[in-house]
Design a protein around this nucleic acid. Structure first.
Length: 362
DNA sequence: AACTCGTGGAT
DNA sequence: TATCCAAGAGT
């Protein structure tokens, strides 16, 4: 339960000033903190949903370079947006961001709503994201509660995270929020959770608000679903066209697939009957609660008939075009390891299958 | 309310 | 190596 001392306003005031001073000193220099553009902040918040800063950094500048404005994004075909998003995961986020951008341009004159309540009406913007954008971009005193904030607050208050009621947590978050700098305060809470108040081994000695904390690290979390393991296999076929242009065979996932609908990947094959002598590489790839142990096998052009595609027909895609279509993250990773993606020299691209060294799993 | 969606670095 | 887990949202 709440400790009376911890909920007193003077204590919260001390907490705010200490946290903000720490943030002023230690805030990471991130691209979306160098802008006041609400659109740029919106994009960052969507990318950051359930995604680590490091992963977002690898995509954010490329996305903003391609779609520097809300109108540029709204004008793009969805497949192009998905291609840029490829590798980031949770592809529905990209679809909803794109859909929302089109709605803002078509129905709202291209002006992003400024209040948390209005923002929340847009697809992909929920309780957390609406408060984050409203506070960071527009200075609204809305408390943004993500996993970090939830952990920091329950620790500070001495609550059991498993039994903390969402309503009570929202109340408490609103009390803590620094009205003078709501955007910085929200970011500071998340920054503290991400870099100091860590889930497993919190760095309490480095914590600026340790004196205001009821638990100083003790923290019980709920049960997690057990990881499952599964084998998977894919075929890699490359050919060189009459114009000496390298091409790779890809198949499109069904439009109604639950997982990554409409995106492109290498042809899946039966891992049981795959020919061991053709093994090119092994990769581990985890999707939600399943660890996939993936083996990629090399085939020669003309052998397509031995493959049984579960989905539609295959398509030969020019290597130079691979980054222009929506690839699944796994496919992108495999093609990168096989040096089949653009960005390599022509000579490297023409590496023969037998020269690709199998990467042995350890 | 419980599930589901991706990915890769950390532990 | 297996598991954890991250600036959630939609259904």
């Amino acid at each position: 339960m709440t400790q009376p001392e911890a909920s007193a306003e003077p204590q919260r005031n001390e907490f705010r000033s200490r946290l903000l001073a720490w943030f002023d000193e230690h805030a990471r220099d991130l691209p979306w903190r160098r802008t006041g553009d609400p659109y740029a902040i919106w994009v960052s918040e969507i990318m950051l949903q359930q995604t680590r800063v490091a992963a977002v950094l690898e995509h954010y500048d490329r996305f903003m370079g391609r779609y520097p404005t809300l109108r540029a994004l709204a004008a793009a075909p969805e497949d192009d947006v998905l291609a840029i998003w490829s590798g980031l995961g949770y592809y529905r986020r990209a679809r909803m961001l794109h859909k929302a951008a089109k709605f803002v341009v078509d129905e709202l004159g291209g002006v992003l709503p400024q209040s948390a309540i209005a923002l929340k009406k847009l697809p992909g913007i929920g309780e957390y994201t609406s408060a984050a954008i409203a506070s960071i971009a527009f200075g609204e005193a809305a408390a943004a509660i993500d996993g970090n904030v939830e952990r920091v607050l329950t620790r500070v208050l001495g609550w059991d995270e498993k039994t903390a009621l969402p309503g009570r947590l929202r109340e408490e978050a609103a009390r803590f929020l620094a009205q003078s700098r709501p955007g910085d305060f929200n970011q500071a809470m998340m920054e503290l959770g991400a870099t100091v108040c860590l889930p497993r081994s919190p760095l309490c000695l480095q914590c600026p608000v340790q004196p205001q904390c009821a638990t100083r690290g003790e923290h019980a979390t709920g049960e997690r679903p057990k990881m499952k393991s599964r084998q998977a296999a894919y075929a890699f076929l490359r050919r060189v066209s009459s114009r000496r242009v390298p091409e790779v065979l890809l198949v499109q996932r069904p439009k109604d697939a639950a997982l990554m609908p409409g995106m492109w990947e290498l042809p899946a094959i039966d891992p049981e009957t795959a020919p061991a002598e053709r093994r090119l590489l092994d990769v581990r790839h985890s999707i939600t609660v399943t660890n996939y142990y993936v083996t990629v096998y090399g085939y020669e052009p003309g052998e397509e008939h031995v493959l049984s595609f579960s989905g539609g027909a295959g398509r030969w895609v020019r290597a130079s075009q691979l980054l222009e279509i929506p690839l699944t993250g796994l496919t992108r990773k495999v093609l990168k390891r096989l040096k089949a993606l653009p960005g390599y020299t022509a000579r490297q691209q023409q590496v023969r299958l037998e020269n690709v060294t199998p990467e042995l799993s350890r």
